[in-house]
């Protein structure tokens, strides 16, 4: 079985910052906007290197989205940066009308997504953003799993024409994917081959899925792991192919079970290959203050929870 090594904990938002820095050097049409969170979004380098292509908009996210839409008219490729909550819910209609419906080439880059934002608590911990964004026609939704992948995704979305929602997080987590990977939007990555159960995970939950596999193996269960960094468009074929073999599936995400990855997977499977499925996701609740690890434990979003879900879904075959 293929194993993955943690090259050292790093935050995915720093992967975004590094990707943006590189884009600054390679693509002169890339511009960046931020709403009073430059340090949190790791946009300092881009700002320093390209002050003329960087826009500090103040605490005014709605204006930021509109400005970004406008900047595309004239060929710029705007990357907006703020927390996931203020990148989505706060500005939903601005994104809907000025970006998605108008088909503007805006990259909405969102940090501090999900529970792992930690102590700031529920007002900042959005668990509904994947749903909000995937419902918008034409929107691409990406939730990379580690630093290296977030950097690669940041670079890749500049080449893709059309609105993109790029979701990443605050805490330092395992960095385990290749540093030189090429990121292909919409292409699921097979991480581990297995025969008894398929685990389809996104974002921070991918590493948890790999941890879960170790425990499952000890219990004699062979699990297949798919890293589904792109939630929309969803790589339906990869999922269908895998469950054709394993006959059951667990989806794992740092998001509400309503509207998230799990529901997208369930829609595909119910149409093409009805399959027993368990959901690792929050259960229609807001988050709260706490350390990331405490919260992931309390809300059932870690390796342990994935193991239990796998055992449960296998019995349902």
């Amino acid at each position: 079985m293929k194993t993955y090594e943690n090259q050292g904990n790093k935050d995915t938002r720093s992967g975004f910052g590094a990707g943006l820095t590189e884009l600054g050097q390679t693509n002169e049409n890339v511009v960046a906007l931020c709403a009073d969170l430059i340090g949190s979004l790791k946009m300092d380098d881009f700002k320093k290197n390209h002050p003329e292509r960087f826009y500090q908009v103040g605490i005014a996210e709605a204006n930021m989205i509109g400005l970004a839409a406008g900047l595309t008219i004239g060929g710029k490729i705007p990357f907006t940066g703020t927390f996931a909550n203020f990148s989505t819910g706060r500005v939903y209609d601005q994104i809907r009308q000025s970006v998605a419906y108008s088909d503007k080439n805006v990259k909405i880059c969102a940090s501090h997504a999900g529970l792992t934002l930690g102590e700031d608590g529920a007002t900042h911990q959005i668990l509904e953003d994947i749903g909000l964004m995937k419902m918008l026609p034409g929107m691409t939704v990406i939730n990379p799993c580690d630093y290296n992948q977030t950097k690669a995704a940041t670079i890749a979305i500049a080449e893709h024409h059309g609105p993109v929602y790029l979701r990443f997080g605050r805490p330092k987590v395992a960095n385990f994917t290749p540093f030189d990977q090429k990121f292909e939007i919409g292409k699921a990555l097979h991480l581990v081959d297995g025969t008894d159960v398929t685990i389809v995970a996104t974002g921070h939950l991918v590493w948890e899925a790999l941890e879960a596999v170790k425990t499952l193996n000890e219990k004699g269960i062979s699990a297949e792991v798919i890293n589904i960094h792109t939630i929309k468009p969803l790589d339906a074929k990869a999922i269908i192919d895998s469950v054709s073999k394993t006959k059951c599936i667990v989806t794992a995400e740092e998001h509400n079970h309503l509207g998230g990855l799990g529901e997208s997977v369930a829609r595909v499977l119910s149409q093409h290959k009805p399959t027993p499925q368990e959901f690792i996701a929050t259960n229609d609740t807001f988050g709260e203050s706490g350390t990331p690890a405490q919260l992931m434990e309390k809300y059932g979003l870690n390796a342990n929870a994935i193991v239990k879900a796998c055992e449960k879904v296998i019995k349902r075959k």
């Binding site: 102590e119 700031d120 608590g121 529920a122 007002t123 900042h124 709260e288 203050s289 706490g290 350390t291 405490q294 919260l295 309390k298």
Partner: peptide
């Protein structure tokens, strides 16, 4: 802290 009434916000 987790399970507190005194949330970050």
């Amino acid at each position: 802290l987790i399970n507190s009434r005194l949330q970050g916000h």
